[in-house]
Design a protein around this nucleic acid. Sequence first.
DNA 1: CGGCATGTTGAATCTAATCAATCCACGTGG
DNA 2: CCACGTGGATTGATTAGATTCAACATGCCG
Lengths: 248, 248
Amino acid sequence: MPSASDQHGIDMLIRKLESIATLSYEERQAIRSLPIRIHVLGARQDIVRDGDQPAQCCLILSGWACRYKLLSQGKRQILSFHIPGDIPDLQSLQLPTMDHSVATMKQATVAFIPHECLRNLTVDFPNIGGLLWRDTLIDGAIYRAWMAGIGRRSAYERIAHLFCELYLKLQAVGLAESYRCPMPVTQMDLADALGLTPVHINRVLREMRGRTLITLRSSTLVIDAWDDLLRASEFDPAYLHLEKQAAA
Amino acid sequence: MPSASDQHGIDMLIRKLESIATLSYEERQAIRSLPIRIHVLGARQDIVRDGDQPAQCCLILSGWACRYKLLSQGKRQILSFHIPGDIPDLQSLQLPTMDHSVATMKQATVAFIPHECLRNLTVDFPNIGGLLWRDTLIDGAIYRAWMAGIGRRSAYERIAHLFCELYLKLQAVGLAESYRCPMPVTQMDLADALGLTPVHINRVLREMRGRTLITLRSSTLVIDAWDDLLRASEFDPAYLHLEKQAAA
DNA sequence: CGGCATGTTGAATCTAATCAATCCACGTGG
DNA sequence: CCACGTGGATTGATTAGATTCAACATGCCG
């Protein structure tokens, strides 16, 4: 049911891309004319699965998604969180077989874009090709930041760092301001993203609340002390490679 | 001092690229004619540093390198290991500012290729452009595998998994066979790569030696029981996205 | 041959995991 | 309108995997 609201949908992608680079008018128009197929998905639903060979990419229009890997004995590692404007399986353009899964976190609207159309776009507009490459590279930069966190930071620092990252990413596409943002993740999700247990997440969150650093309740993050949060996590936003650097 | 041996050098890149895709004759020739500047570097020497804005990429011709991030209090996270044929800072083509450093592990020969030449190459040969994109995406896939390991696997599994990965990567470019390969890393390097301490690495290596799984001595890894190693680490080579799948 | 980096081992300690209840908010149906 | 069910959050008690500290061994290089 493509309609006026879809237009708003694909604009989310433009907003995202303009947060990491500059687009010309023609390029914006070319992106707007991408054919998309819109789906509304429930919470915790797989979009693509480990081993799949998708022929399309999914653009998040509303809601959140995450990439994850399942290991033996029910262990799960969340690899990234994705917000509106993101294309969490963009790499499938060049890597046919998925080495992980992508799922929604909460109810989400996604737009499917055929690989072929994206390929044509990169042929007609090499700059957009470069920009999509750049986008996947930023994903890689975020992986590196997470790796450093999981490998070498304390639980407290890891959680603080993640909140800084997500707040800035949301802010960059206009989905956060005044140190408040949506955060539709359970404590179990945080645990699986940060290499901890839900119990420990709970305890650290309590401590942060006690120190009036942040409050996470009913899927909303409130940052009470942004500067302290930055300091606690030694956060340096450079790795997000945002074009217009935010209030960091 | 470009000479006959350099030719052999850039062939390393071709060998690497052909391990993850197919090249036409013209493409191989175009790559061979890239202008390169060869340097010999000592062990533990930075090639590019966090914050740099390089105007060239570095191709490893011999020796090993690694990406790493430094955190406060001397903490270090190694983000990836790189072997001959790899271009560990290829992402700088699209992300001008480095968000981490790259250094040699042991003495290494590297070839510097100006960004401009690589860009021209991707314009003249879009397939090579896609292939370079693919290469950076495989780096990303390896990051994901490491994240899952650091976040959710035991020390024993992590170490085993890393050895499987490195053996297959080396084998793919002809630098390993018969379950032996170079492994010029100290126990401290392994610790910083896997989110552990050198002491613990030492203990787990001893255990693996005791179980006749692997032996790591004088910078050489000998795999005594490949199948057990695969099983111990639940290793699935799919994430390496190798063209000609190895004996896994 | 001497010096320094790396590897090895033991003992004590700690962070975070595990196990196990209990609590709470919310939505549903009787 | 309230009992009930459910998923998520919270808390306590205990344990385990890995760290830390410290000492000593080994081996490589100039």
